[in-house]
Measured scan of single mutants.
Amino acid sequence: SISSRVKSKRIQLGLNQAELAQKVGTTQQSIEQLENGKTKRPRFLPELASALGVSVDWLLN
């Protein structure tokens, strides 16, 4: 799922939720909701993929 991929990649990069949120241009709460499965397809998906160094396709599939 996107939530597990985001969380595992974030941890692999040594980032906390607030640091990832800053790179993406969103809030820590938005990252938390995404990782908890409350958000399925965030509006900041391209920025998120870029910050994590992955493709949008990788996040979604």
Rank of each mutant, 00 (worst) to 15 (best):
S1H: 10
S1K: 09
S1F: 10
S1G: 11
I2W: 07
S3Q: 09
S4Y: 12
S4E: 15
S4M: 13
S4R: 10
R5Q: 06
V6T: 08
K7W: 07
K7S: 08
S8L: 14
S8P: 03
K9S: 06
K9P: 02
K9F: 05
K9H: 05
K9L: 14
R10I: 05
R10G: 00
I11Q: 10
I11S: 07
I11A: 08
Q12E: 15
Q12N: 07
Q12D: 09
Q12R: 09
Q12A: 13
L13W: 06
L13D: 03
L13N: 05
L15E: 00
L15M: 15
L15Y: 11
L15H: 03
Q17P: 09
Q17R: 15
Q17W: 12
A18Q: 12
E19R: 04
L20Q: 02
L20S: 01
L20H: 00
L20M: 03
L20G: 00
A21M: 02
A21N: 02
A21E: 01
Q22K: 13
Q22R: 13
K23E: 07
K23W: 08
K23N: 06
K23T: 07
K23H: 07
V24I: 11
V24G: 02
V24T: 09
T26N: 03
T27R: 06
T27L: 06
T27M: 05
Q28T: 14
Q29N: 11
Q29T: 11
I31H: 02
I31N: 01
I31C: 02
I31V: 06
E32P: 00
L34I: 12
L34K: 03
E35I: 02
E35A: 01
E35R: 01
N36W: 07
N36Y: 07
N36A: 14
G37W: 04
G37N: 07
G37R: 05
G37L: 04
G37F: 05
K38P: 08
K38N: 12
K38Y: 14
T39Y: 12
T39L: 15
K40T: 14
K40F: 13
R41T: 12
R41S: 12
R41V: 14
R41G: 07
R41Q: 11
P42A: 08
P42I: 14
R43P: 15
F44C: 06
F44I: 05
L45V: 08
L45G: 03
L45Y: 06
P46W: 11
P46E: 12
P46G: 11
L48P: 00
L48D: 00
L48E: 00
A49C: 05
A49G: 04
A49Y: 00
S50I: 14
S50H: 13
S50N: 14
S50M: 14
A51Y: 06
A51I: 10
A51T: 06
L52V: 01
L52W: 00
G53K: 08
V54R: 01
V54L: 05
V54P: 00
V54G: 03
V54I: 06
S55D: 11
S55I: 03
V56T: 09
D57A: 11
W58G: 02
W58M: 03
W58N: 03
L59S: 00
L60Q: 09
L60W: 08
L60P: 00
N61L: 09
N61S: 14
N61M: 11
